[in-house]
Structures are given as C-alpha cells and as structure tokens.
C-alpha cells in the first residue's frame, strides 16, 4: 500500500529532525522573542485608545494580540528554515543530480516531499507551535472563536499551508533551469512577508497594496485563516473564502504539473 510508504516518509522526516534537537530550544526562544516584539509594536500603536479604525471596522488591541499569536504559529510551518523547506530540498536534489534517481522511483517526488514536509510539520506542532501557543496564551492572553469559526479556520489554515507547499515546491522546480535557487527562497519569503499579512494585517494596508495582494496567492496563507479565526467575516463569507482558496490550489496544481513536465523534459534531453 502506498499509504504505508507515505507514512514512512513522515516518520523519517520526523526522526531526522529529532537528531538535531539542539535547535529546538534556540528556535523556541527566538520565536517567543518575536512574539514579544510584535505585541509590543501593536501595544505602542494602539496603546492610547486600545483600538484602531481599519478598512473592516474597529480593531481592538486584544484582537491584534490574538492575530500575532496565530500568525506566529502559522509562521512556524512557513519559515521552515534552510534545509527543510520543500524549495530547498528539491533545489538540492536537482543540483546534486539525485533527481535522476527519484525519477526512477514509483513514488512521485512531489508526494515524497509532501509527506516529508508533513513529518517536519508534525515535529513543529509538537516542539514549535504548542509550546509557543502556550507561552503566548499565558503571557498575553488568546481569544478563542466560536467553534464553527474555529473549524473553518482549521480548514483555511490547512489550505493555506498546502498553497505554501506548492509555492515553495514550484520555486524549487526553477532549479531545473537555474541551479542555485536558495536565493529565490529568501525572495519568496519576502513576498510572503509583505503580501500575506504575516506581520501586518491587510486591513491596515493602503488600498493600492490591498489591490495588489488580491491578485497574489500569499494572503491565503495568513490573512484568510486569521481573519476567519477573528470572526471578521460572516459564515457564508468565510465559506466563499475557502472556495477561493481551493481555486488557488487548483490553479497552482495545474501550473506545477506544467513546470514539472517541462523540467523533466529538459533533464531527460540535456542530461541535467
């Protein structure tokens, strides 16, 4: 059964992360510090009145704190640092020529990397997200939405991570044409940083930037799930947002298949 094999990928990734666990403590400290910085910034900005106007109505400080904690949690999965991101892995495989071996295997490379990423993310849930959520909730306080919104949020967050996986994977595929892709990793992360609402919610953006962000997939990773979490949309609206995410996923999948085909073709014809 293929599922068993996939489960192996998950376990292997999880275990190899365990081998380098000295990073865990360091990363945890780094993440909690980032939490402090973000919260302090919003306190300073909203401090006096405790709320601010935005394109979707008044935002309270408490909401912003929740926004920061959830966004930092998502970022644990998104900013998988060098060596673990799908982009990095596929870039390495193409650069080293290992990709030729992968092509001879019965399992698709995309599936392989996907389940590896899943293993990494499971590791991050246990050692990254849970400790941080706990720390954030204890120190700053965390709002929890109505169960219906929580459910929708969970779906939206997973969709967002799938979109991120595909983006990272696709930028990695660029290695078929241009070998050193890790520069692009940083570029991708920068784009995500601005247009996803990772640090600043889009409702505080000037209109022209909001307009740009609507044409890009990045907001699906942070802004969409978090704004659902904060109950900033009615339930039907939130449903529509989920459909929008699915449309993006479909588009990216199509694009990814096209890239993959061409890349492999190039590899086969030119020998990499």
């Amino acid at each position: 059964m293929k599922l068993l094999l996939y489960w192996e990928f998950v376990k292997i990734a999880f275990r190899s992360r365990l081998a380098y666990r000295s990073e865990v403590g360091v990363l945890f400290v780094g993440r909690v510090l980032a939490l402090f910085v973000q919260v302090a910034i919003w306190k300073a900005l909203l401090g006096a009145e405790g709320h601010a106007d935005s394109s979707i109505g008044s935002i309270t400080l408490r909401e912003m704190v929740t926004y920061v904690i959830i966004s930092r949690s998502i970022s644990v999965f998104v900013s998988l640092f060098a060596g673990y991101s799908p982009l990095w892995r596929i870039g390495e495989k193409i650069r080293s020529g290992e990709i030729a071996m992968d092509l001879t295997r019965p399992v698709g490379l995309r599936e392989n990397l996907f389940f590896e990423t899943l293993g990494n993310n499971l590791f991050e849930i246990v050692f990254g997200v849970l400790p941080m959520l706990l720390a954030g909730a204890l120190v700053f306080g965390l709002d929890v939405p109505h169960p219906a919104y929580l459910l929708l949020f969970a779906v939206a967050a997973v969709n967002g991570l799938l979109i991120y996986f595909l983006l990272s994977y696709m930028v990695g595929l660029i290695a078929f044409w241009y070998l050193t892709v890790w520069h692009l990793e940083r570029f991708l992360n920068d784009l995500i940083l601005v247009f996803s609402g990772a640090l600043i919610p889009l409702w505080f953006f000037p209109p022209f930037l909001v307009a740009i962000s609507e044409w890009l997939p990045f907001r699906q990773i942070y802004y969409t799930p978090i704004s659902i979490y904060l109950e900033k949309h009615s339930l039907p609206e939130a449903g529509l947002l989920l459909i929008q995410q699915l449309v993006w996923l479909g588009l990216l999948l199509l694009l990814e298949r096209a890239m993959w085909k061409r890349g492999v073709q190039k590899l086969v014809i030119q020998g990499g």
Binding site: L45, I200, F204, L209
Partner: peptide, 30 residues
C-alpha cells in the same frame, strides 16, 4: 550567485522598510 545574493539582500531589507512605511502610513507615529 554573487549578484543574486546582492539583489536578494537588498530586496529583503527594502521589504522591511516597506513594512515600516505601511504601519506608519496608517498610524503616523509610534
């Protein structure tokens, strides 16, 4: 690779600055 690193670093830092601008464009001062 050198040129790419150079460009990418500049972009990263500019993005940080853009973030500052977005916030202070909205809130005027911190």
């Amino acid at each position: 690779a050198f040129i790419m690193r150079f460009v990418v670093q500049l972009i990263s830092r500019s993005v940080e600055l853009l973030g500052i601008w977005i916030l202070l464009n909205k809130f005027e001062h911190i």
